[in-house]
Amino acid sequence: MGIELDTRGGPTGGPYYEDFEGFNMPEPPGHGSRRIPRGDFPTGPEVGTRLPDIVATDQAGRLVDVHADRAGQPAVVVFYRSAVW
């Protein structure tokens, strides 16, 4: 898939980064530049399809199968960068 890096934004002086739409916010020191895609980028399973299985270790060291663990309840599944940085 031809995903393109969005290079239209850039640092605006100081700790700020501004994207091409003029949104700006601080870029914390040490974060490196954000690798933001330009145009379409993959967002995974489509609306209307079953969420693929997720089996992963949780914060207590327990192996969790999301579909089994939610026990028939609706759920929100968030993919984010890191709890560390």
């Binding site: 759920a75 984010y80 890191s82």
Partner: peptide, 11 residues
């Protein structure tokens, strides 16, 4: 509603 948050961090 259950909430799950996944990242590439170690347990």
């Amino acid at each position: 509603v259950r909430l799950y948050a996944l990242s590439y961090d170690e347990p």
